[in-house]
Structure formats: C-alpha cells, structure tokens
C-alpha cells in the first residue's frame, strides 16, 4: 500500500523533477534560478499591488491584494523561511482578505460605489508624490548602504527554533499580541453591536 502511494507520488512529482534537472543543466549554479524566481515573484507583487490601488472595482482590488500576498509568500520561500510563507498565506489570504471582503460587501461598495469614479487631479498628484517620494528618499539609502553589512546565509529556518523562541525569549511579546488580539476582538464586537430600540427603552 505504501509502495503504491510512493509510486503515485513519484509519478506526480516527475515533471517537477525533470524541470529542476533542466534548470540545473542550463543554468549554472542555483543563483540564476533564484534570480529568475525572484523576478517572477516581483512581477506578481507589482501587478497585484497596482491592481490593488488602481482598480475601480473594490473586489478586483482585493484580488490584486491576494496576488500580492501570494507573491510575498513566494519571497519568504526564497528567503528560506517556509513557516512564514505558510503563515502569510494562512493569515493574510485566509483571514485578512475575508475580513476585507466582508467590509466590501457590508458597505455594498462593489461596482457602482464611490470608488468607481476616477480620483481627482489633485488627489492623483498627491498619489504620485506619495509613490515617488519614499522611492527617492529611501531607495538610494538602501542601494548605497546595505551591501556593507549584508552577509547571506541560506540555511532553512527551523520551525522548532521559532517555537522555542516564542516560549523563551519572546514570551512577553507573545502574551502581548494575544492580549491585543483579544482586545481587538472585544472592541470589534462592542463597536458593531446593534442595540435594539426595545432594549434601550427597557433599560431606561
């Protein structure tokens, strides 16, 4: 039984293995393959990002956001941090995007909402400034200063170490984030509580 499963898995994986062998044959070293993967992920992120901020339909904007999240998850994989990549998909794509979808649907802000109009010329100019200014200020800073202190280490981060860190060094921030989540949940319930008119009259 186990052998049969292994055979099926081997058949499923064989195209990927062949692709890997092909890349290894034509591209000397892993660096180039990593660079290509990086380029693909960056393209995905950029396309998703511009879709997220530019689309006149908020549901499409949310789909662009999902695309960006998936691209960033791919970059986490490239950084040899698989746990973070899974958390990215789980938390952002799974939870945050569902929340945003709820927000879109509850405000009925899909097709003919306020976002369907193009932004005014002043707002567009502000947006251009907001896009260019961080790039102009921080971009040269990154390009000029970072290589002096960067050393690359490409071992995969052990999830076990992350768990140990959560329980030992970072236990205080762990507790803090649980309290923050609890408070946020309670606050959200409190804010969205719709008091019925009969209740408020009865309590008076």
């Amino acid at each position: 039984m186990d052998q049969a499963i292994e055979k099926v898995l081997a058949i499923i994986w064989s195209p990927f293995n062949a692709l890997e062998a092909l890349i290894a044959e034509y591209l000397p070293g892993q660096e180039v393959a990593a660079l290509i993967a990086y380029g693909v992920y960056v393209l995905i992120i950029l396309a998703g990002g511009f879709m997220a901020i530019g689309s006149r339909n908020l549901v499409r904007a949310m789909l662009g956001l999902v695309l960006t999240f998936l691209g960033v998850a791919g970059l986490y994989m490239l950084l040899a941090s698989p746990f973070l990549a899974f958390m990215q998909v789980l938390i952002y794509v799974g939870a945050v995007c569902v929340l945003i979808f709820f927000a879109i649907m509850l405000t009925r802000n899909t097709n003919e909402g306020e976002e369907s109009k193009l932004p005014g010329i002043g707002s567009a100019i502000y947006g251009l400034f907001a896009f260019v200014l961080p790039l102009l200020v921080l971009g040269p800073l990154i390009v000029l200063n970072v290589p002096k202190l960067a050393t690359v280490q490409y071992e995969e981060t052990q999830t076990k170490l992350l768990g140990q860190g959560l329980m030992t060094d970072d236990v205080f921030s762990f507790e803090l984030i649980s309290i923050i989540l609890l408070v946020a949940m309670a606050g959200a319930v409190f804010l969205a509580w719709r008091r019925r008119p009969s209740d408020s009259e009865a309590s008076r």
Binding site: E115, S123, G127
Partner: peptide
C-alpha cells in the same frame, strides 16, 4: 492617498 473609501 488616492483612495476615496475606508475599505480602499
């Protein structure tokens, strides 16, 4: 900066 609604 450019979005008009809170959701955006």
């Amino acid at each position: 900066v450019t979005r008009r609604t809170l959701v955006g």
